[in-house]
Simulated assay, not measured.
Amino acid sequence: MTKIDIVSGFLGAGKTTLIKKLLKEALADTKTVLIENEFGEIGIDGGFLKESGIEIKEMNSGCICCSLVGDFGTSLKEVLKTYAPERILIEPSGVGKLSDVMRAVQNVIDEKDVVLNSAVAVVDASKCKMYIKNFGEFFINQIAHAGTIILSRTGNISEEKLNTCIALIREHNDKATIVTTPWDELDGKDILDTIEGAKDLEAELLKEIMEQHEHDEEEEHHHHHDHDHDHEHHHDHDEDHDHENHHDHEHEHHHEHDENCTCGCHDHDHHHHHHADEVFTSFGMETAATYTKEDIEEILKALDDEETYGIVLRAKGMVADKEGGWIYFDYVPEESNVRAGKPDVTGKFCVIGSKLKEDALKKLFER
């Protein structure tokens, strides 16, 4: 039996930290495979996690849900066939929709010995309100479809702010277990037990997702039928299209092709859904330049300036240290971590956000 667990979470929520904790404290003696789907030009998380000796299948793609029903499905089958693992942990992109991931997994696991075991949402308690306000469509989707919601950074906020976060979550999911205790006070085995205790709720949520998808596809089918009928009627009564009509026809054909894609990326015209590429962008580059720890700290502090650099939600990377060794760094708004790390083949960084100003970011990181 292969159990599949999805660990979702918005950008910088702490998915990787939680996964490391589970691997070390709860899954050390099991045959586990981690599958990542990273949004961005450079997949950096894989480098961090390879230190754990865990098999990794990295997929870097700008189109999150297309990769999930296309490349993702193929990769998942390949992992199942090649490794026959006891457990697969899936770490979706921070801007991926949990419902898309759950549906993609369900579409692949037709074998009797594979089960979608759990779907988790990791939520940064200190940024809950801001993310709902600014990126609700993506953030709320992860909350609404999780059987377990694990709050991060709860030890750094007031009780009032924590209660506000819990109340906001309950508006969108009133059944999931919410883990509020700081992670360093919990054993990974206790967290895993809590996650696995939500199987009945997960089955209920997954059923709703699949039924909604079937309903959406049925609506799209009727739309295509009406569209094709109208187009045929138009063609019969107007054989001589002028240039303007020809242009309209090309536009309609492209639109119809998009709707035929089953990934769900292109249905926003009818259901007001947006694909991650429409809202989020990423900027990354490799560099052989050297930096001091103070250089990196100044750079990360500067990223809080939205007017200059756009809305930066996440930055991470590793670069060579002027004084020898390497510097690893992580950033989420108003919070950063800079530390020493092992040498890599080249320096690299990745910035993810909304309305990013790439020229300014490039200038900021160049040395």
Rank of each mutant, 00 (worst) to 15 (best):
E323V: 03
S126Q: 11
A276G: 04
V332P: 06
R367W: 04
I299W: 07
G12Y: 04
C63Y: 10
H255G: 07
D71E: 15
N163F: 05
V95Y: 04
D71F: 00
D305C: 08
V123Q: 09
G155H: 11
V69A: 00
V332G: 03
F139D: 08
D200K: 11
E211T: 11
K20G: 13
D295A: 02
I352M: 12
D124I: 01
T17P: 06
K342G: 08
P333I: 00
K81T: 10
A104R: 00
S52D: 14
I88F: 06
E36I: 15
G284Q: 10
A121V: 07
D187Y: 10
A276N: 06
T290F: 02
P343D: 14
K316G: 06
Q212T: 14
E366V: 07
A315N: 12
E204A: 07
E38R: 11
E196G: 01
S99C: 12
L22A: 07
I44D: 08
F365D: 07
A176T: 03
L68V: 08
H243V: 09
T82Q: 12
E366F: 10
H253D: 14
E323T: 15
D230Q: 12
A198D: 14
S99E: 10
T290Q: 15
D248T: 02
I64G: 01
A146H: 04
D330N: 15
M130D: 13
I169V: 12
F280H: 01
D344I: 01
K161W: 04
L303T: 12
N163K: 15
V338Y: 09
E196M: 10
K357S: 01
V279E: 09
N260H: 15
T281A: 10
V115N: 11
I191N: 05
L98V: 07
G96W: 06
H246E: 11
I42K: 07
E78M: 04
L186S: 12
E306L: 05
V79S: 00
G188I: 05
H257F: 02
D184I: 09
L22K: 05
L23W: 07
I311A: 14
G147F: 06
K175I: 00
E307G: 08
V115C: 12
A340D: 15
I6G: 03
V101W: 00
H253G: 10
T346I: 14
E159F: 09
L186I: 06
N156R: 13
Y309N: 08
I88E: 04
N337C: 13
D236A: 13
H233D: 14
N337K: 14
K362Y: 10
T281F: 02
D305I: 04
F10C: 04
F139R: 06
T346H: 12
A144L: 09
E366D: 15
G9I: 02
A26H: 06
C265W: 02
C263P: 09
G197W: 06
A203S: 13
V33Q: 09
Q212R: 14
K357W: 00
E286D: 08
K363W: 01
K129P: 00
P85R: 07
A176K: 01
T82W: 03
I299R: 09
K77C: 03
